[in-house]
Design a binder for these strands. Structure first.
Length: 564
DNA sequence: CGCGTTTGACCAGCGC
DNA sequence: GCGCTGGTCAAACGCG
């Protein structure tokens, strides 16, 4: 930092020297950048050397024997590095003048060497950065594979639950370089494909595959599968972009998906927010608004506009019971590259949907069904999630399987829409208020990183609130969590990893980690969605649109997952 | 003028 | 078959 000005001065000086013909051709050949950097390094090195020799040489007639250029150079360097100690600088230059020819050559050689070292340093730094990235990716892939191994183990213990999270597997295939040797995984995929005749969430599976194809081909329109799956009535959208989507692949899963059009997964996020919009990294266009039955607040319909034919849609509606709760429902899978923030959310929702549909949810047996889900097994297996001992949901007659991430429950068991039992055992009542469910509780530091994922991008009015500051302070934790989620399409797995990470991070940051936050499975009929997420409109859409820049208060400090 | 929102109309699914 | 509801379309409108 402090040497930067000095470096610039040296660069400037040496450029002048070059222009004045005092630099030989050898130095000039290194180009301006190398020359300058090398000169800068040399300047420091030279100063140090001069300092070591300080006291050995006492002559003071440098200026009288050197060129004007050198004098200028010395003067520049002296000002910065020596703090105005002219004697020191003089000694340095005196040393140079003692043996003018040889010293000049030595200096230039040192400059060349310094520039070479600099270049090498930069190269190494770049390589190190690249390796770090690779290591991170490998770590993520390893974690994903490990969690999937746990799932496989669990599946073998429970043959009835042979439903495999195809999405996570596919994702792993895409993201892990060493995935080509996961024969067991492929076997499981085969088994799953052959078992599509069972009452499985085909729509979700198809959507998952779509996500996989996304990973394979970024802008692959194959996501149209997701669109088909998501469209409960394909014929109803003759003119819609979804209808333009290619037909389902010959894959049996796809065919099965088309056979069960109503089986489309949704992921709903309930967040307590006074802000009209929440940020999920995507761009949305409102295409409709309806008054939903039993809710005075209108429901807004949004479509992803990041791609022409992106099938992802989302619904935004405020909770009838508590209008401070914003329910955002995602549906479908993006067929285009997403920005990191959007990718995180998309992966999260897709993974949640995959988990939901990959389980025996069709039985609608409630708790038993979800308890049999491999994801639930993960919770059981995870020693870092002491409260995740139960996954239950009561039967909900929702037309679509929906998994709800409830971020509205406050720490300490104070719930926004539903109460929390001691130790985080939550009783979540969906907006519809029809199906209370027992939700497993999970410790979360406050504010919840998951909630932070939905940090609002706009606020109706007013300056950033303290909550926003807190959120920024914990951005690193957020990033850790979101990265963990994004790394694994299996939402439950990722969530477990995220929670563990958060807990560790919270301890590291010496931040309080109240255990009032929960992650549970519950029935929610009010919302659902899958895909990417973003801003949510409010009943006051116009005001919401106009408002921006603020940081609405997010009291979301817990996460409850509910499924229907 | 282009883009996004609003809003009434239309369509399909579902229950009675 | 009818009505209700959810979801979507598309013309009208507003804003920058």
């Amino acid at each position: 930092m402090e040497t930067r000005p000095e470096r610039h001065r040296h660069d400037h000086v040496h450029e002048q020297e070059a222009q004045e013909g005092e630099e030989d051709a050898a130095v000039m050949e290194h180009g301006a950048l190398s020359l300058q950097r090398g000169a800068a390094l040399f300047g420091r090195r030279h100063d140090e050397e001069a300092g070591r020799r300080r006291g050995e040489i006492r002559e003071v007639d440098f200026f009288s024997r050197d060129s004007g250029a050198r004098g200028q150079d010395d003067g520049e360097g002296r000002g910065v590095t020596r703090g105005g100690r002219d004697d020191v600088n003089i000694e340095l230059d005196l040393l140079t003048t003692a043996s003018a020819g040889e010293e000049m050559m030595a200096v230039k050689n040192q400059k060349i060497e310094a520039s070479a070292v600099e270049v090498e340093l930069r190269r190494v730094v770049e390589e190190n950065r690249r390796l770090c990235g690779m290591l991170e990716e490998l770590t993520r892939s390893y974690g994903a594979l490990y969690q999937q191994l746990l799932q496989v183990t669990q599946h073998r213990q429970h043959p009835a639950d042979l439903m495999i999270n195809r999405s996570s597997l596919a994702h792993t295939h895409l993201t892990t370089a060493a995935s080509h040797n996961t024969s067991s995984t492929r076997q499981l995929l085969e088994a799953r494909a052959s078992s599509t005749t069972t009452a499985q969430p085909h729509a979700v599976v198809a959507g998952v595959e779509d996500e996989a194809s996304d990973g394979a081909g970024e802008a692959s329109p194959s996501l149209s599968n997701g669109g088909n799956n998501n469209d409960d009535a394909d014929g109803k959208r003759k003119a819609s972009p979804d209808a333009m989507a290619p037909p389902p692949r010959e894959n049996g899963l796809q065919a099965a998906a088309s056979e069960l059009p109503g089986r489309k997964a949704r992921v709903s996020v309930r967040a307590r927010s006074e802000a009209p919009m929440i940020s999920d990294g995507c761009q949305w266009r409102k295409y409709g608004q309806k008054m939903a039955k039993g809710n005075p607040c209108p429901r807004a319909y949004y479509r992803c506009t990041m791609a022409v034919a992106c099938p992802v849609r989302k619904q935004v509606q405020r909770c009838a019971e508590d209008r401070t709760i914003l329910v955002t429902t995602y549906e479908g899978h993006h067929n285009h590259p997403l920005p990191p923030a959007a990718t995180t959310m998309a992966n999260t929702t897709s993974a949640a949907a995959a988990m939901l549909l990959s389980g025996p949810a069709t039985s609608r047996d409630g708790a038993a069904a979800l308890l049999g889900h491999p994801a639930a097994a993960l919770f059981h297996h995870s020693s870092s999630i002491p409260y995740a001992s139960t996954m239950a949901t009561l039967s909900a007659s929702a037309p679509f399987p929906t998994i709800t991430l409830d971020l509205t429950q406050a720490p300490g068991g104070v719930a926004g829409s539903g109460g929390l039992l001691p130790h985080g055992l939550g009783l979540h009542r969906p907006p519809g208020g029809i199906h209370p469910v027992v939700a497993p509780a999970m410790p979360f530091p406050a504010p919840s990183p998951l909630a932070s994922m939905f940090l609002p991008q706009r606020a109706p009015t007013g300056p950033p609130t303290p909550t926003g500051l807190v959120a920024r302070q914990q951005q690193s934790v957020m990033e850790t969590v979101t990265a963990a989620i994004a790394a694994d399409p299996n939402f439950t797995t990722a969530l477990a990893a995220a929670i563990s990470s958060v807990m560790a991070g919270a301890a590291h940051q010496a931040q309080p980690t109240p255990r009032g936050n929960n992650v549970g499975i519950a029935g929610d009929q009010a919302s659902g969605s899958a895909g990417a997420a973003t801003a949510g409109p409010t009943p006051t859409a116009a005001g919401a649109r106009a408002a921006s820049g603020g940081s609405p208060r997010f009291a979301t400090q817990s996460c409850t997952m509910s499924t229907t």
